[in-house]
Amino acid sequence: MTGTSLRTYLITRLALVVPMVLILLTLVFLLLRVAPGNPIQAALGGHVPPAYVHQIEHRLGFDKPLITQYGDYLWNIVRGNLGTTITDNRPLSQIIKQNGAATFELTFFAMLIAIVVGVVVGLIAGRYRDTPVDIAGRLFGVIVYATPPFFLGLMAQLVFGVWLGWLPTSDQASPLTQALLQTHTNIFLVDAIWDGSWGALWDIVKHLILPATTLGLITAGVFIRLTRINVIRTLRDDYIEAARARGIAERRVVFFHAFKNALVPVITVVGLNLAILLGGVVLTETTFNWPGIGHELVIYLENRDYAGVQGIIVVFALVVVAVSILVDFLNAFVDPRIRY
């Protein structure tokens, strides 16, 4: 009998989040402060009177000592206040609500595509190892993994948008849909279903297909390789042979015993890949002119608006932390050995 229960494990895991988040926030803070040049000056443009720059600096608290700034920054985050951008004076909370919803929609479906494609192709390739199906699956995985998202995106736009004319290549929905759609959650797809406007829903889905597939396939490559190798490994495991020795039907041995065990490590990697996916989101949103926070991040970076950059990076970081906890919880529920 092991000493700790599932509940103890979960509480311990949650407690560990506090130092993890603190280190993350500190890193974001310091990295932006060590960047050379005066960011206020840069954000406001070249020819602004020094008095005005000082006034802005004072308003944003950049004339205080670094340690005080750090304290204020942490305190504001604890209160849920991520600040306001310098260039266009937008509260970060508004950016998260509006652009974040678009990013959530894109990331969610990209992850869904990545998991479905990755796991299904991986399972088939692993089960039918060294057959043409396996070789095709592996090749597909390597190609989508090695292709940069903007290139894959541009090719998809060219083929499906320009040559075939099947799918739109830019934005989250057509202007008409955007004008008519009632806002409930800011997530277009949910709002369209909420109102039962199926024409709008179809328009939104059509806009979603190319960017979500582009973003999803990058990560799918990793899942294909990982799932495949895990299936091959678990099919050689001793308990698989033991199940066969008890006359368990081959289909159940493969689908239940082997696949379930093969997917345990995949859960962890799915979580870790969310960070890579968020990196890909920036490129994909820019390629498809998708009004998400990745798109905003690029704009704020170009303008050297580091209040905006800092706020968005903190949000990304917190999402990654939240997902990593979710993954640990999922793992603990699936694999009884994890509850140390």
Binding site: D237, Y239, E241, R244, V334, D335
Partner: peptide, 23 residues
């Protein structure tokens, strides 16, 4: 033959540590 494994013929192995599905 698979249907006979279990009700007619059984097999136990050298290494018991890894013969049960850990999940």
């Amino acid at each position: 033959v698979r249907r006979m494994r279990g009700p007619e013929l059984g097999l136990i192995f050298q290494e018991p540590m890894t013969r049960l599905n850990p999940l």
